[in-house]
Simulated scan of single mutants.
Amino acid sequence: MSDITADQLPELLRPAIEKYRDEADETRRMPAGLLDELRTAGAFRLNAPRETGGFELPLASVLDLYERLGRIDGPTAWVVWNLNWGFSAAILPPSGFARIGADALIANSGQPGRLVADGADWRLSGAWKIVSGIESADWAALLAIVFEGDQPRMTPAGPDVRIVWVPRSAVTVRDTWQVVGMRGTNSNTVVVADLTVPADLVVPLSVTPRIDRPAYRAPLVHLVFPGCAAVLLGMARAAVDEVAALAGRKVGMDGVPLAEQPRLQAAVGRAGAQVGAARALLLSCAAELDRAGVATTEAQRGELRGAISYAAETARSVLTAMYEAGSSDPLYGSSRLGRIFRDGMAAAQHANMSAAHYELAGRTRLGLPPNALLV
């Protein structure tokens, strides 16, 4: 990895991603051969500290890479996003990170489970749905709320929310990912029942990183949330690419090549502009957080949430327009455009990209409290 720059990764990995993406869709998981190539290249160390062999990239740079990978294959990029928890080295105590190791792939889920103090340790229970890439992971980072009796423990900011790292071998994975889109992400359900977790593998969601450098100064939740939006925009851009390629070889019912039809020219032009604008907004908001570091304001964080929701809204519109522009082509199982449409529309359903987050963006812009837990 020492001779590879992060910027080179998408094109360096393109042959392997294209080679394995059909197999991933058929088997509903990332093939071992692709996982090995991604791992060797350092695709899962985008935000890991330099001293652990990571690239330690700022958020905007990481999102740019996710978008470019998503343009090659959405499900692959999605797993790369969800397993990019190299920043664990910056927020865990040294003893906790030593248990995990620098090479571990860590899948995560934002659905909260239940955490109860047990002397110096903790006991974790719960079911976490849609944990992408869990079969490729070595560990899982699971969100949990601390309970005292039957009630959540409260802090001045709301419920006491923690992140809990557990080995993949200590959880049960239920094969629930029976879907028509994003099949290759292996987003199954993780179940834990009264598992003892050492104290050095549990940190508050509001933890202050022990490595005080720019890549780790933005609020932790924002190192995670925007990645799925970047991947989705990459898929929307891939749909535009596919229609452009299709239009060069397909003839309409009137005998005129699609590429020569003003209607299609306008659709492709509009879609390209829409994706470009949404991408620029997302990266710009991320760059603002990179610059502000620990001094980020609620308004800046709210703007990023709005950009995430806008990315999903835009991607849906572009995917639908390109599906229509593709005529009968995307109806077929062999169609790359059809696959991108199904994957993209599935990805857009992620809770991180819900239109409900516009409310948060609006409240913070108006100077009101965000009225949300993960801000």
Rank of each mutant, 00 (worst) to 15 (best):
residue 237 R to V: 04
residue 39 R to V: 01
residue 178 Q to H: 05
residue 359 E to H: 03
residue 303 E to Y: 14
residue 215 A to H: 10
residue 144 A to H: 10
residue 309 S to W: 00
residue 133 G to R: 03
residue 168 R to W: 05
residue 286 A to I: 09
residue 185 T to W: 11
residue 56 E to N: 07
residue 265 Q to N: 13
residue 25 D to K: 02
residue 246 L to G: 00
residue 72 I to D: 03
residue 142 L to G: 14
residue 52 T to Q: 08
residue 261 Q to C: 03
residue 231 V to R: 11
residue 67 E to A: 04
residue 42 G to P: 12
residue 313 E to G: 09
residue 116 V to Q: 08
residue 203 V to P: 06
residue 281 L to Q: 13
residue 23 E to V: 15
residue 319 L to D: 04
residue 266 A to Q: 09
residue 171 V to C: 04
residue 157 A to P: 01
residue 346 A to Q: 11
residue 270 R to W: 10
residue 244 A to P: 03
residue 357 H to S: 06
residue 151 Q to E: 13
residue 339 R to S: 04
residue 5 T to C: 12
residue 334 S to K: 01
residue 192 V to Y: 10
residue 32 A to V: 06
residue 172 T to V: 15
residue 26 E to F: 07
residue 356 A to L: 13
residue 48 A to P: 09
residue 232 L to S: 03
residue 355 A to K: 12
residue 2 S to H: 05
residue 106 I to Q: 11
residue 107 A to G: 02
residue 46 L to P: 04
residue 364 T to I: 03
residue 80 V to C: 04
residue 264 L to G: 05
residue 357 H to Q: 06
residue 258 L to E: 01
residue 367 G to A: 02
residue 80 V to E: 03
residue 6 A to C: 08
residue 249 R to N: 14
residue 57 L to H: 02
residue 336 R to Q: 03
residue 351 A to S: 12
residue 350 H to A: 07
residue 281 L to P: 01
residue 201 L to P: 09
residue 266 A to K: 09
residue 117 A to N: 05
residue 97 F to K: 09
residue 108 N to Q: 10
residue 345 M to A: 00
residue 8 Q to L: 07
residue 290 D to N: 07
residue 60 A to H: 15
residue 133 G to S: 04
residue 317 S to A: 15
residue 320 T to Q: 12
residue 8 Q to Y: 03
residue 170 A to M: 15
residue 123 R to T: 04
residue 112 P to F: 09
residue 249 R to K: 15
residue 285 C to M: 06
residue 53 G to Y: 02
residue 277 A to F: 02
residue 250 K to Q: 14
